[in-house]
Design a protein around this nucleic acid. Structure first.
Lengths: 258, 258
DNA sequence: AACCGTTTTTTTGTTAACAATCTTTGAGAG
DNA sequence: CTCTCAAAGATTGTTAACAAAAAAACGGTT
């Protein structure tokens, strides 16, 4: 996990929490301050408002959130256990920058987990679950039509968590939450284009679930993840090669001009 | 997660860390104190030396580990995120006591994860991996023969993590680590007998992996987990029924004698 | 202008003290 | 003897201050 890129924290200054959609499924009542900070930062990462490498300075966060330093440290600590934040001793906390190998592992884990989730959904989704999924997909389509990128991202990731909810296994859901948030970082870092790829994947997954077609559901969710993965470009991996070749070229020109 | 049972922390006073076997796969070099405390407590839970409901008082832990309170609090905080410890505001931290529903979810999650791990192992385990697994199974047998219960528990849980290592997916491994530790709590709470059940399950799983028989590997690991689950008794759930029936009986006797 | 060394400032890490809450103990009444 | 209440003690939660490390700024030299 590398890539130190200085970016500002202004995305945190706007309240990130839309009332109708909260990704992190923690209690929404009276919260510990550190919990709130944790959730807000986590959501900001999830929604790609906080980019990989962003420095999360404690004092700055204290001002943004209006809390004391220990509260911030607690939230950052927790985010670091979930590998969303990288705390470097004596240097500060930074939004994590997953390596290509991290990305591979995360997608692999997602695939394993979501395969199981798809099967479970087929086995135990009831009519109200299906209805709920249809409504979600409709919301995605609407957000896409209206060009609300942030909302699309939010709903798109949340779709997978809605599937996980149906399984009623909170541990699997929580694990997927982490993986989904980490996926956001990966897309921030390595995404080539915007997602014009997955337009109706979700709808087709829901259809397979509604028809109790386990095989199709699994196939579609895996295809969806594969398509997402293949839309990434780990060209950053070649940067050193590029710099080297550029340097060699420059050196070559120098010798020619002298 | 309930069940407040006061038990002592003396198991933490002995150094839990056997040099040849460390369950938690964090770096073994220079560690942050809170990391060490976290690992030691985590391992103590894993090895069933710390029982569910045990109160983990901050001051007591400070004395045991020879560190300051903030260090302890950090470790406890982390353990609570992994649901191994239950922090109740103003009351203190307690080793978690999973409910029967928790147990169901944990085993379900384990099954999903370990199914995938088994498949991966079949697909990518090399000769040295197989050899390593054989050695591990031999160590288990030896520990069982010598009656070293603690060692048996340690090795038995570690077997699953060794399988996870072969997949080279650190996120899946880490998730399984948590599930395995949580399983220890469940067995502590709901285990009927000692495990005379799973004597050669591991060996048979290794055999299936060695023979590249994916179907058998999956079947055997699932059977292993099922057998483990069925060895549990959620009789605690029936306590109220027992008390009621006892009370009714007593009442019946009272009416007869009068 | 670039580089290096020193000083200052900023930020992170740690500790101690105080505040708040809960539990235990002891005294008094019935 | 039992129960209730108040006080004391213990524990958890929070805050402020100090220590340590890194980054930035400044001044001098080449």
């Amino acid at each position: 996990m590398e890539k130190r890129q200085e970016r500002d924290l202004s995305p945190l200054k706007q309240s990130a929490r839309s009332p109708d959609m909260v990704i992190k499924k923690e209690t929404m009542g009276k919260q510990e301050p550190s919990e709130r900070v944790y959730l807000d930062i986590s959501n900001a990462i999830f929604e790609q408002r906080l980019k990989p490498g962003t420095k999360l300075g404690e004092q700055m966060l204290c001002e943004i959130f209006g809390v004391n330093r220990p509260v911030i440290r607690r939230a950052l600590m927790r985010l670091s256990y979930e590998t969303l934040v990288d705390i470097r001793p004596n240097r500060g906390a930074f939004v994590a920058s997953p390596s290509p190998e991290d990305a591979r592992q995360i997608f692999e884990a997602r695939r394993a987990v979501e395969e199981w989730i798809a099967r479970q959904c087929v086995a135990c989704a009831g009519p109200s679950d299906i209805e709920h999924l249809h409504a979600h997909v409709a919301m995605e389509a609407e957000a896409r039509r209206s060009g609300d990128r942030l909302h699309v991202i939010r709903l798109s990731g949340a779709f997978h968590l809605e599937l996980a909810n149906i399984t009623k296994n909170s541990r699997m859901r929580r694990f997927l939450e982490e993986l989904v948030a980490q996926t956001s970082l990966i897309i921030s870092l390595y995404g080539k284009n915007d997602e014009s790829l997955c337009d109706d994947d979700h709808a087709r997954i829901v259809e397979a679930i509604a028809q109790k077609d386990s095989e199709s559901a699994v196939k579609r969710i895996c295809a969806h993840l594969d398509s997402c993965l293949s839309s990434l470009s780990f060209a950053e991996e070649n940067d050193s090669t590029d710099l080297r070749s550029i340097f060699m070229d420059q050196h070559h020109h120098n010798t020619l001009s002298s």
